[in-house]
Computed example of a mutant assay.
Amino acid sequence: MRFWIQCTRFETGRPIHINIALVGSMWRDGERTMLAFVGEGQTIEVVETPEQILDRHLGPIGQA
């Protein structure tokens, strides 16, 4: 089973789809959210916060 998240690239404002299994970590850097990929050492910047990304795709935090 594959899960994809849709984020908006910070620099272009264009949507990008990312396989959630490939995202190793995410964190805030000022106004930007950084997604780091597993095994590649590559990062991208998106405009959504980590909470917005998780809420949109996995449901609100704290609800089962």
Rank of each mutant, 00 (worst) to 15 (best):
F10Y: 15
E31S: 09
L22M: 10
L22A: 09
P50S: 04
R2L: 11
Q6N: 06
T8M: 04
I61T: 03
Q52W: 01
I44E: 00
G13Q: 08
L22Y: 05
G30C: 07
F37N: 01
R9K: 11
D29T: 07
D55I: 00
P15L: 08
G59P: 08
C7A: 14
P50W: 00
E11M: 07
G39I: 08
I18V: 15
I20W: 15
I61D: 03
I53Y: 00
R2A: 12
V47D: 00
F37Y: 15
M26C: 14
R2V: 04
I20V: 05
G24S: 12
C7R: 01
V23S: 02
V47Q: 04
F10A: 12
H17D: 05
M34D: 00
Q52T: 11
R2F: 07
Q52P: 04
M34I: 15
M1A: 11
I20M: 11
I53Q: 00
E11D: 15
M26Q: 09
E11F: 12
C7Y: 04
Q63W: 09
R14N: 06
I61H: 06
S25M: 07
D55G: 02
L54F: 12
G30K: 12
T8I: 15
E51G: 05
G24K: 11
V47W: 05
L54R: 13
R32K: 15
V46F: 07
I18S: 00
D55R: 12
R56W: 08
E40Q: 09
I53L: 11
I20N: 01
G41D: 06
Q63V: 13
V46C: 12
T8L: 06
L54P: 00
S25C: 07
R28Q: 13
F10I: 03
R28M: 15
W4S: 04
T33Q: 06
M34K: 12
G39S: 06
G59R: 06
A64D: 14
G30D: 14
F10E: 13
T43S: 12
E40S: 15
T12A: 04
M1L: 07
G62K: 05
I18C: 01
P60D: 06
P50M: 08
M1P: 09
F3S: 07
H17A: 11
I18M: 00
R32T: 04
T12H: 10
I61P: 01
H17S: 10
E51N: 07
G30S: 10
V23P: 03
R28G: 02
I20S: 14
Q52R: 11
T33Y: 05
E48L: 09
G62Q: 08
D29Y: 06
E45A: 15
A64L: 13
